[in-house]
Write a protein that binds this DNA or RNA. Sequence first.
DNA 1: GATGAATGAGCTTTCATTCAT
DNA 2: GATGAATGAAAGCTCATTCAT
Lengths: 196, 196, 196, 196
Amino acid sequence: MRISDKHEKIIQAAIKVFAKKGFFSARISDIAQKAKVADGTIYLYFNNKYDILISIFEEEIGKIIKEVKALIDQEEDPRKMLEIFAMEHMRMVRDRRNLAEVLQMELRQSNKFMREYRNTKFIEYVDIVSKIIRKGQEMELFRKDLMPGVAKRAMFGALDETARLWILSPDHQYTIEEAAKQISTIFLSGVEEKPQ
Amino acid sequence: MRISDKHEKIIQAAIKVFAKKGFFSARISDIAQKAKVADGTIYLYFNNKYDILISIFEEEIGKIIKEVKALIDQEEDPRKMLEIFAMEHMRMVRDRRNLAEVLQMELRQSNKFMREYRNTKFIEYVDIVSKIIRKGQEMELFRKDLMPGVAKRAMFGALDETARLWILSPDHQYTIEEAAKQISTIFLSGVEEKPQ
Amino acid sequence: MRISDKHEKIIQAAIKVFAKKGFFSARISDIAQKAKVADGTIYLYFNNKYDILISIFEEEIGKIIKEVKALIDQEEDPRKMLEIFAMEHMRMVRDRRNLAEVLQMELRQSNKFMREYRNTKFIEYVDIVSKIIRKGQEMELFRKDLMPGVAKRAMFGALDETARLWILSPDHQYTIEEAAKQISTIFLSGVEEKPQ
Amino acid sequence: MRISDKHEKIIQAAIKVFAKKGFFSARISDIAQKAKVADGTIYLYFNNKYDILISIFEEEIGKIIKEVKALIDQEEDPRKMLEIFAMEHMRMVRDRRNLAEVLQMELRQSNKFMREYRNTKFIEYVDIVSKIIRKGQEMELFRKDLMPGVAKRAMFGALDETARLWILSPDHQYTIEEAAKQISTIFLSGVEEKPQ
DNA sequence: GATGAATGAGCTTTCATTCAT
DNA sequence: GATGAATGAAAGCTCATTCAT
C-alpha cells in the first residue's frame, strides 16, 4: 500500500462499516471517520455511496478469484478441485469476515437498487465451480445427468449459507474447515450410506 | 378475509413492495397505497416499519412451515422427505415469488439493523432438514459422520441460492422442479459416478 | 385566503425571503420559518426550490396582468394607455416592493439555471405595451417607423430600471408617480424641446 | 498580455463562466480550468469568489467608460451625444456579449449578497447620460421639466432591456444598431406623430 | 509563486412517524 | 378506528477555501 492510498483506505473502511451496519444504514461520515479522511474526500475517489459498494465487489472479488484459481490450477483431479474450492471459500469467509458479510448481504440486496449492475465478478467466481463440474463430467468422474449451472449454484449456496450462519453464531461447534470438508463430502458422495 | 382485515392487507402489500424495492427503499406510503389504507393506519397495526418486516417473517414462514411439515409427516423414508423438502421449497419460491424475494434478501440484511431479533421461525424451518438428517442417521440410511447442523444449512443454502438465481434470470433454462430434483439427487448420492 | 392556506403562506414568505437574500442565498428553512411551517411542509406544496420561484412568477404576474389590463381596457386613447401602464407599473413596484425585487432580479438570473423555462407570463405582461403601440400606429397617433417589439422593451426597461433604483436609494428625491409621469412624457413626446 | 498575467486570464475566464452559468452556479474550478490555472492560484489574485465579480465590474466597466467618453467628448451636440451613447452601449452588448450578460445579471443580483458594495463605476457610466441631459437643458435643446436623474435611468433601462432580449432570442428580427437608433429616436422625439 | 488534494460546513430533500379531526 | 397533512431529524453530496509540497 502506497503512503496514504486514500482509495484503499476508504475501501477498507467501507468494508468494515458496511459489514457492521449494512449498506443503507451506513453513513458516509461513518466511513470517512473510520478511514480518517474528511467526508468530502470520499467523493474525490468515488462518485457516490453505491460506487463504493460496487468497487468493493469488483476489486475484492477480483483478488479472491485470483487466489482461488491459482490454487485450483495446481490440481488435476476435479474431485480435489471441489474440495479446494470449498476449503478456500470457507477460509476466506473466516479470515476476511467483514468482506464476506458485505458480499453476502449486498449480493442479495443489490439487485433491488442497482438493477442495471451485472455482477460479472461474482459470476466469474461461481463459474469456477461449473467449470470443475464440467471437467469432471468429461473425465467421466462425475455424473452426466447433472446440469453444471445448477450444481455450481447449489455448491456455492451450500458453502455460503453455512458460512453465513457460522459467522452469526458466536460459539462455533465446529471449525469452518470441518464444515468445508463436510460440504465437499456431501457434494462428492451424497448423504446416503453407500453399499460396499 | 374478514371485514376490514387491514392487518393482512398491509402484510400482503408490504410483501409486494419490499420485493420490488427492498426494505430500505420501500416507503410506508407505497405500502399504504398498495394496501389502500392511509399511511397512519399502518401504525394502528404495526409499531414501525421494521415491525412489518418481522411480521412477514413470523406469519408467512409460519404458514409455510405448516404446509411443508404436513407433507413431510406423511412420509416415512428420510430420503423421500429430503426430496419433498427440496421440491416444496422450490415450488414455494416459484409460486410465492415476492415473499421468497423478501425472505431471501432481508434474511441476510436483517441481522444488521435488527441485531436483537432472533429469527426463530426461520430456524424452525431449516431445522426440518436437520431432523430429517438425524432420522436418516438413526435409521442407518445416512452417513453418521455428517453433522446435521452443517447438512441442514448446506441443503437450505443450495436450494435457496439456486432459487435466487432462477428468479433473477428471465429465461429459465430448466424448470424449478428439475432444479429441485437435481439438488436432492446431489444431496443423496453426491456428484460422483458410483461403481455398481 | 382560506384558513391556513399553506400554499399562499409559503408563496408570500418566499417573496419576502427571495427579495431579501436572492434566490440562491435563500434557504428553504428561511422560507419555512417565515411561513411558520416545517421545512418538509414546503415540499407538500412545491416540487423544489425552483418550483417556488416559478410559482411566484406565474401566479403573481398573473394577478398584476389582470389588474393592469382591467385599467387599460377602460381607455380608448393609446396615449392615455401608455400613461396608465407607466403609472400602474411604478405603483406596483412601490406597493409590492418585495415582489418587484424578486421579479426584477430573477427575471435576469433565471435563464441561467432554468434554461428551459419560458416566462410566458412576463412576455404577456410586456406585450401589453406592444399592443398599445400597435393600436396607436393604426390610429395614426404614433409614428409608424417604430417597431413595437423594440418600443415595448424600451418602455418596460425604462420603467423597471427607474423603479429599481428608486427602491435602492433610501431617500427618494421624487415620488414614484412623478417618475412614471416623466417616463411616459419622454415616451410620448421625447426629450427635445418642441417648436410650437 | 504580460508574461503570466494570471489576473487578466482569470478575469476573462470568469466572465465567460459567469455569463454561461450565472454567478452562483459557476464553480471556482470551472473558472480555474478555463483560465488554465490551478484552483488555488485564483486565491493568489482574488480574495474570494465575490471579489472576482467585483473586479469584473470595476475593471471592465472602467474600460467601457473610457471608450464611450472618448467618443462623446468629440461631439458638441447633446442630441448626437445621446445617439452615440445608445449606439455604443448596444454595440458593446453585441461585441462583448459575455461581459454584458454578467453585468446585466449581477447588477440586479449583486446588491442582495453584497449589500455594502456601492457600484461606483456603474453609477459613473450611467451618469454620462444625466450629464448629456443637463447639458442639453442648459443649451435649451431639451425640455427643462425633465429630471436628469430619471431620464438617465430611463435611457439606460430602455437600452439595457432591449439589449437583454436581443441577446436571448436566437433569431434577431432587427440589428442591434437599428434598435439603438429607434431608442434614441424615441428619447429625442417621442413616439407621437408630430404636427409639422 | 503555483499547485491541487483535502477539508468540512452547509443545504436541499426525503420520509417515518405523529396527531388533530 | 381511520385519515393524511404536517412535522423535523437526518444524510448524501457540493464546492469555496486552505495549505503542505
